[in-house]
């Protein structure tokens, strides 16, 4: 079994209204040192396979089929073997 920790980020230059709003809220809460907030999505996916290469290929497919829209998203992931 492998577990893939996948992070879906907004590409550079794409507006992040959620991040901006969070930054504003933090400022209102008195966190004056907060300069910028960026949001991203995190998915942890367990894959029932014993082959790391197959797991990696599967994760690539998953990212392109559903998790990321290449117009605004970049994706990255770590794959670890678990018992």
């Amino acid at each position: 079994m492998f577990v893939a920790d996948i992070r879906i980020k907004l590409k550079k230059g794409v507006a992040d209204p959620e991040g901006k709003n969070t930054a504003k809220a933090l400022e209102l809460l008195g966190f004056s040192e907060v300069a910028e907030v960026k949001t991203s999505k995190f998915f942890s996916i367990h894959l029932d396979t014993h082959d790391e290469a197959a797991a990696k290929a599967q994760v690539e497919k998953i990212c392109l089929a559903l998790l990321a829209n290449p117009v605004i998203n970049d994706y990255s992931y770590d794959i670890k073997k678990v018992a």
Partner: peptide, 13 residues
Amino acid sequence: PVPQAVLSTNDSS
């Protein structure tokens, strides 16, 4: 084959 656009989060969030 891949999306050419996206309907992204409103500016107001």
